[in-house]
Amino acid sequence: MPKLLLGVLAILVLALISLFIGVSDVTPMSLFSSSPEDRPMQVLLISRVPRTLALMLSGSALAVAGLLMQMLARNRFVEPGTAGTVESAVFGILVITIFWPGSPLIAKMLAATVTALMGTALFMQILKRIPLRSTLMVPLVGIMLGGVISSITAFFAYRYDLLQTLGTWTMGDFSGVLRGRYELLYISAGLVGIAWIAADRFTVAGLGQDFTTNLGLNYRRVLTLGLTIVSMVTAVVVVSVGSIPFLGLIVPNLVSMAVGDNARRAIPWIVLMGAGFVLTCDIIGRVIRFPYEIPIGTVFGVIGSALFLYLLLRRRPANG
């Protein structure tokens, strides 16, 4: 697939750019002219490489999580951020932070996974109560559910004086990524792998419960697997770098316009595009106010919501 190869190449270029942007002077020249113990190499290994890897891992995983959500909820406008998943994950982190203040990242991640799973399951339950299944009502209900969950979170955060800490989980930011603080994100790579292996099952599940059962698949099992992957990916990303709004919604939609809805064909593209999107936005955030940084959550909030609006209004011409 030459096109896919081209995509990989583009991502590599973006990753290289991402490696060499920053306040500390790291250029290919300075790397070669100094010894490995010197500053440029150390900055590269401790800060730049982890950051670039974290960007690619979380971008692609979130995009794939969005795709899974869209297939399982059978709705184009669903993603972890419009289904209460992200907000539930944040709630889990808050709960474990209150009860076990010094807990390691992995414990936080597990707590976030559990609550994310519960929140998403609740969302799926509410979906069953929408008889007409209006396409646009589904994300609306999800966004509102997320709002309700985050107001619960805010209430407890307020009582325990954790409102400020809350901001670090809700606002995606890669500036704190260092060696030793992003490795959990590799779990999400594994999860994306599982999603790709099981891609055909998800495609079938996306056609509905009856159809899936007819083909001899256990619908509930596929659903559980999918929701677990989505919840874990969300938990891992939120714990490590914070959430990135609408990423999981935009990337799969743009990809499906180009290559269609077959998950096995779409996933490689979604992985690439997710990574590319996040890399680009992070580069913008780092360059626009050099030498300061703007968190990716903010940059992507602008680009992501503008693209979401485009997707919403695209198919409806002026005559409505």
Binding site: F77, S134, T135, L136, M137, P139, L140, I143, L309, L312, L313, R316, G320
Partner: peptide
């Protein structure tokens, strides 16, 4: 479309 409106 009310829902579109609210979502937008």
């Amino acid at each position: 479309d009310l829902y579109l409106l609210v979502l937008v």
